[in-house]
């Protein structure tokens, strides 16, 4: 059936069009890009799912893993809950699952990731001028994909998370005894993670729209125009920040886990 679908798709059989049987005539390695996307995203999903359910090794003084912050349930390891534990003790799953929805939703609805996974996973299209395997296509006009329009809410939520993770990075200026004024490699890791997340969020298309893109007359809002030009520059690099921050989060978590399990020792800088 799948094969049928491929054969039936528009380009080749639409009456009136040039009769060219090949699904595409590209001679370059167009499949490399989607392949890399799949590889990276699948690795991330496997790792993060495992970690989210592991429900352990996410806190080691002074670090909390970004996968578990803020930790909102009573089951949370002592010291990992920046915002208290409003979920109380009835939540018996991994506390990571409470908050995971937000970064997940943010990235799922991100304009850039949409491009990446529509192409790589859904093959719609796999690459430019390469026919897609679907018989019908309605884009983002119906449920569930119309929900992509909720991206701005996830963006707002993402900002809150950025604040919390920045706070976590500041807490990392303690040492393992909880004394302020120190710095370890882990401090740098959490700082870098927060920075990448900020860059990712600030370069977001919704952010660009919000700070100035929606205006009709820039000349009447000089400050917002200035901001918009800056955000536009960042926006240009959004795909790059999307990947760096994704890998950054995983590495930060992995670092915390490694220190927590004693797999590596956290080197003291001062």
């Amino acid at each position: 059936m799948r094969a049928m679908g491929i054969l039936m798709s528009g380009t080749m059989t639409t009456p009136g069009r040039a009769k060219i049987a090949a699904r595409h005539l590209r001679t370059d390695k167009w499949w490399v890009q989607p392949l890399i996307t799949v590889a990276v995203l699948v690795s991330f999903i496997i790792y993060s799912t495992w970690r989210a359910f592991e429900n352990a090794h996410y806190f080691v003084e002074p670090y909390v893993s970004p996968f578990y912050s803020p930790c909102l349930a009573t089951s949370c390891v002592e010291g990992s809950s920046d915002l208290g534990q409003p979920f109380g003790s009835w939540w018996t799953f991994s506390p990571s699952l409470i908050i995971l929805l937000f970064p997940l939703g943010f990235r799922m609805t991100c304009y850039y990731y949409r491009k990446a996974y529509y192409r790589a996973f859904w093959q719609s299209p796999p690459a430019c001028a390469v026919a897609e395997p679907h018989k019908t296509y309605t884009g983002e006009t119906r449920q569930p994909l119309i929900l992509q329009n909720a991206h701005r809410w996830f963006f707002y939520a993402g900002l809150i998370f950025n604040v919390i993770l920045t706070y976590d990075a500041i807490l990392a200026f303690k040492n393992s005894e909880g004394e302020w004024g120190h710095m370890q490699v882990g401090t740098l890791v959490l700082l870098a993670n927060a920075t990448f997340l900020w860059l990712y969020s600030l370069s977001c298309h919704t952010c660009r729209h919000t700070v100035g893109g929606r205006l009709k007359h820039f000349s009447k809002h000089p400050v917002r125009y200035k901001l918009w030009t800056k955000i536009s520059e960042l926006n240009h690099h959004h795909p790059k920040f999307a990947w760096i921050s994704l890998i950054g989060v995983a590495l930060a978590d992995f670092y915390v886990r490694s220190v927590s399990t004693g797999f590596i020792t956290d080197l003291q800088i001062f």
Binding site: Y111, R114, K115, Y118, R119, S124, P125, C128, A129, Y137, T138, G139, E140, T141, L145, I146, H205, N235, H236
Partner: peptide, 21 residues
């Protein structure tokens, strides 16, 4: 709404118009 922002238009535009972004 049918556009899924996969950016092929931007890739081919000879005027380098950033159609999608």
């Amino acid at each position: 709404g049918m556009c899924n922002i996969t950016k092929c238009c931007t890739e081919v535009c000879p005027e380098h118009i950033k159609i999608t972004d």
